[in-house]
Design a protein around this nucleic acid. Structure first.
Lengths: 194, 194
DNA sequence: GCGCTGACAGATTTCAATATCTGTCAGCGC
DNA sequence: GCGCTGACAGATATTGAAATCTGTCAGCGC
């Protein structure tokens, strides 16, 4: 059906399928090439290394999350407190959805996290950037204490680590996690208030 | 030199030495027995399984931390805010000291954490209990908002996970960690205030 | 009697031989 | 010319046989 030209995009789609089927430990570049009906040399024409290929898949996957969360962060109309709470809830919900619905891709993302990949570092930077925007808005509007918004955003990120770091994914499906999450949320929001 | 009677205590001391020397992955019950100059059957006379032996070593090791932190938590004379800050700082300092000074024993503790050992669960419960005491005192004295002190203590524990969960030990020695730690501390303390 | 030993079964780990994979590149064929 | 192939070297993973370990227990010796 698709003997079309081999593009980076088509390789990424197939790599996702292969990762979903075999998991990050078993999926090989040869598997991807086989699924595409090409030699593995052709894959290396588009991605210099296997690590680069995995990073690109993760990048693509993380970018989906950015769209939704950007929208929430930029909605300047709503009070910053409500926006921050909604943002943190959306983040947790998205992560939980990914962890439960795409376990193999999520495992890939976890592996990258442990490798200190620049893609993950970039993702964290973007996320903290979105938090910074909300907190800056809140400080400008008098809702939040006017300190260093960037430092505050980093502190919020650090304090909610248990609810977005993939290392804790196993705990996201245990009873009581929602109560724990809102308790931390409340604490943080009170801490930010002017 | 010590052909004295074989006691649980003597076994634990030797197990610590063996763990320090070989690390949790390599240390075996046979190694411990050899170091003690007895057969490994004798070790099983005092500890039913290898897991029980490792748990006991970890227990002993965690108990050292309890003493210092208990004293800080119970010093009713000082303001709760200062006490909480000092407690969290002492916790972080102690963990960091253990991680750096006793890497092999720390790895054992980490392995147990991943196994969901009851010893670690118990340790966490004790720690949250100490936090609860400080927060309850603070609420009674009007320093902290009077909510559910136990839930608040759990939230504080969760929000500081990055600074006491052994999974993050590698980050405890990176530059900027102290600033991140005090930013989270400040956020939490502001959040607790009445 | 009582604590220890040491042999044992089954589970786990180690090790080395083998197979597979990653990344490169000369050259084929459109 | 240009994108793809497929053979190749070195690195990594798999496999199965051998070694070691865990946990048990009958019996030795003090």
């Amino acid at each position: 059906m698709p003997p079309e030209t081999l593009t980076a995009e088509r390789i990424l789609e197939t790599t996702e399928e292969v990762l979903r089927r075999y998991g990050p430990a078993k999926a090989t570049v040869v598997d991807v090439a086989r699924a595409l009906g090409v030699s593995h040399g052709s894959v290396y024409r588009h991605f210099r290394t296997k690590a680069a290929l995995r990073e690109a898949v993760t990048q693509r996957w993380l970018d989906q999350a950015h769209a939704e969360l950007s929208a929430l962060a930029e909605d300047g109309g709503r009070p910053a407190q409500a926006r921050l709470r909604a943002w943190l809830e959306a983040l947790f919900a998205a992560k939980r959805r990914k962890a439960g619905g795409d376990p193999e891709l999520f495992a890939t993302y976890m592996a990258l996290t442990e490798e200190h990949s620049s893609v993950v570092a970039e993702h964290v930077a973007v996320m903290v950037g979105l938090l910074t925007r909300i907190i800056r808005d809140g400080a400008a509007g008098g809702e939040f204490a006017a300190g260093d918004p960037e430092a505050a955003a980093q502190a919020v990120w650090d304090a909610t680590v248990r609810f977005h770091d993939p290392a804790y994914a196993a705990e996201w499906f245990t009873p009581g996690i929602d109560a724990a999450f809102s308790a931390v949320n409340d604490l943080i929001l009170r801490g930010l208030r002017a």
